[in-house]
C-alpha cells in the first residue's frame, strides 16, 4: 500500500513510468520461471546484490540532469573498494574506515566537478580520463583481489533494522540527500542549469555551483554504494566497478533521465537499475546456455528500451492533444 502511494506520487505523469512498468513486467516473468521469486528472501538478496548499482544510478542521474555525464563512477567504486579493504587490513576500525571511504569518493566526485564546472572541461572527456586514473590507482593499491571486511559489516548488511532490510538504508542515504536538495531553491536551479546553462546564467543562477553539487553528489552516492558492495562481497577487487559506469548511465536513461539535461528524476533510475538486475536473474535462472546468456540479456534490454520509447511517444502525443484542448478553453473567452 505504501509502495502504491509512493509510486502514485513519484511515478505517475513522470518519465519514470516506463522503467517501473518494465521492472514489474520482468518481475512477473521471473515469477513464472523461478517459483519463490516473490518471497521476501529472494527480494532481499536481489536488492543486496543490486544496491551498489542503484546508488551509482542515482549519482549518474543527477549528473545527467545537471547537464553532464560521469563515466568514472564505476572505477571510483573500484578505488574505494580496495581502499576500504586496505584500511581495514591496516587495523582501522570500520567506524572510521567507512566515513573515510565515502569522503574519498565525494572528493573524487568534486574533483570531476571542478574540472568540468569551473575549468569547463568536457564532462565526457574529463571523466573518461579520470576513470583511467582511478582504475590505475585501484590496480596499484591492490593488484589481485583479496582481503576481508569486519564481521560486523557483513552481519549488519545482511540483517535488518526495525524490520527493514539494512540494504534499503544504503539506498535511502543518497535518495534522501537528493530529495532534500530538491526541496531548496537549488532544486529548480540545477534543472535549469542542466537544460540551458546560458539562460540559467542570465537568470542569476550560479551554474558552476549547481554542477559541482551534482558531481559531488555522484561521488557521495558511489561511496555509499561501495560500502554496500564491500559489505556484501566481503573482499576487495580492483576491477569490481569496471562495468558499473555504463550500467548506471543506462539505468538512468531507462528511468527517464534525458541525456539532454534537465529532465527526469532519480526514482526512475532506481527502477531502471532493478530492471537491469532482473535481466541477469532471469537469464541465469532460466538455464540458458552460457554462450547465449549475453545475447539474450541484450535482446531483453533492447526490447525493453523500444517498449519504453513507444510508450513515451504515445504519451507525449496524448499530452500534446490535451494541451491543445486546454489552450482552447483558456482562450475561449
Amino acid at each position: 500500500m505504501a509502495l502504491a502511494r509512493f509510486l502514485a506520487k513519484n511515478v505517475k505523469r513522470t518519465t519514470a513510468l516506463p522503467a517501473v512498468l518494465l521492472f514489474f513486467t520482468l518481475l512477473t516473468v521471473n515469477f513464472f520461471i523461478m517459483p519463490g521469486a516473490l518471497s521476501r528472501s529472494f527480494l532481499v538478496s536481489f536488492l543486496n546484490t543490486n544496491t551498489a548499482v542503484i546508488c551509482l544510478t542515482m549519482g549518474a542521474s543527477v549528473v545527467i540532469i545537471a547537464g553532464g555525464i560521469d563515466i568514472s563512477l564505476g572505477p571510483m567504486v573500484s578505488v574505494a573498494n580496495v581502499m576500504l579493504i586496505k584500511l581495514l587490513a591496516a587495523g582501522t576500525h570500520y567506524s572510521a574506515a567507512i566515513p573515510l571511504t565515502v569522503l574519498a569518493t565525494t572528493a573524487m566526485g568534486l574533483l570531476n566537478g571542478v574540472l568540468v564546472a569551473v575549468l569547463r572541461g568536457s564532462s565526457l572527456l574529463t571523466t573518461f580520463a579520470a576513470s583511467t586514473v582511478y582504475s590505475g590507482i585501484a590496480l596499484l593499491v591492490m593488484p589481485v583481489p583479496g582481503g576481508s571486511v569486519a564481521r560486523e559489516m557483513t552481519a549488519f548488511y545482511n540483517g535488518s533494522l526495525l524490520g527493514i532490510p539494512a540494504t534499503v538504508f544504503f539506498i535511502l542515504a543518497p535518495y534522501v540527500v537528493w530529495k532534500a536538495f530538491k526541496r531548496t531553491p537549488h532544486g529548480i536551479r540545477l534543472y535549469a542549469a542542466g537544460n540551458n546553462p546560458a539562460k540559467a546564467y542570465s537568470s542569476a543562477v550560479n551554474v558552476p555551483a549547481e554542477k559541482l553539487f551534482a558531481f559531488g553528489f555522484a561521488g557521495f552516492s558511489a561511496g555509499i554504494g561501495t560500502v554496500a558492495l564491500t559489505s556484501s562481497i566481503g573482499s576487495g577487487d580492483p576491477l569490481i566497478g569496471a562495468q558499473m559506469s555504463m550500467m548506471a548511465i543506462s539505468a538512468a536513461v531507462i528511468g527517464g533521465v534525458s541525456l539532454s539535461g534537465g529532465y527526469g528524476d532519480i526514482t526512475g533510475g532506481i527502477f531502471g537499475s532493478l530492471f537491469l538486475g532482473l535481466i541477469t536473474v532471469i537469464v541465469l535462472s532460466s538455464n540458458i546456455s552460457s554462450f547465449l546468456q549475453q545475447f539474450v540479456s541484450g535482446v531483453i534490454l533492447l526490447l525493453g528500451m523500444i517498449g519504453a520509447m513507444l510508450f513515451t511517444m504515445r504519451r507525449g502525443e496524448k499530452a500534446r492533444r490535451s494541451a491543445d484542448r486546454g489552450g482552447g478553453t483558456a482562450h475561449g473567452e
Binding site: 534543472y191 535549469a192 537544460n195 540551458n196 539562460k199 540559467a200 542570465s202 537568470s203 534537465g262
Partner: peptide, 8 residues
C-alpha cells in the same frame, strides 16, 4: 532571446 528555460 528570453531567459525562460523549457524544462521547467
Amino acid at each position: 532571446e528570453l531567459s525562460i528555460v523549457p524544462n521547467l
